[in-house]
Simulated assay, not measured.
Amino acid sequence: MAGNPVGRTVSIALALLCVGAAPRTGPSFGIWSNPKGSVHVRAEPCGRNMCGVVVWASDKAKADAARGGTDPLVGTTLFRDFTPAGRNRWRGKVFVPDIGKTFSGTVTLLDPDRLEGEGCLLGGIGCKSQIWTRVTP
């Protein structure tokens, strides 16, 4: 998946799991880690929607993003305008920094400490999902 733009898209798109189930407060807000532990995203309100901002990234993730034209990675809003799409589910746009493109994605809160994110290319093609975990202080 690492050398494949679709795979990278899905990996980052799944980072969208940082968004969850409540419009202003709730269990989805906080910091979430991707499965590899290389990116941490803070889910937070952005107007009436929810967004996800990178608050920490490994050196490799930073280098990959820089090669794709996003530098710095930390502070970048990856998840934009996520709106409710059912119980414990959100839909929005995901910016993939290592390829500089934006795709559609969904996030589903599985339980207080796990989110499943799914990212797809246009028309629902090439979808992938990942489970992200809450980062505890």
Rank of each mutant, 00 (worst) to 15 (best):
N49P: 01
S38W: 05
F103D: 02
D59S: 14
V53S: 03
R42T: 11
G68V: 04
P72I: 09
P112A: 09
G117Q: 02
E118C: 11
V54L: 06
R67K: 13
R67A: 11
G100I: 09
S129I: 14
R42C: 11
T102F: 10
V53D: 00
L121F: 03
C46E: 13
S33P: 06
G119A: 14
F95D: 00
T76L: 03
P45C: 05
P84G: 12
L109S: 09
D113R: 10
A66W: 05
F95E: 00
N49Y: 12
C120P: 07
V54W: 02
V107K: 01
K101R: 14
K128A: 15
F103G: 00
R80V: 12
V55I: 08
E116M: 11
L109T: 10
L78N: 06
I99N: 09
G105F: 09
L110D: 06
C127P: 02
T102R: 12
E44V: 15
G124R: 09
W132F: 13
R91N: 10
T133Q: 06
G68Q: 02
W132N: 13
E44H: 15
N34E: 11
D64G: 07
S33I: 12
V39I: 15
T77C: 03
N88F: 13
R42M: 14
V74C: 02
V96E: 02
S129N: 15
T102M: 07
D71F: 06
H40T: 07
V39W: 14
I31C: 08
R114C: 07
G68N: 02
A43I: 11
L121M: 12
H40C: 05
F95H: 05
P72A: 03
F103V: 12
R42E: 14
K62W: 00
N34L: 13
L122D: 08
F79M: 08
T77W: 00
D111C: 06
D59R: 15
G52T: 08
G37S: 07
D111M: 07
D98C: 14
V54Q: 07
S58W: 04
P112E: 05
G75W: 01
V53Q: 06
D64M: 13
P84Q: 14
P35E: 04
K101D: 07
L73G: 03
A57K: 08
R114L: 05
T83H: 13
I131P: 08
R87N: 06
G47V: 13
D59A: 15
T76K: 05
K36E: 05
E118Q: 14
R89S: 03
L110I: 11
I125Q: 08
G37T: 10
V74N: 01
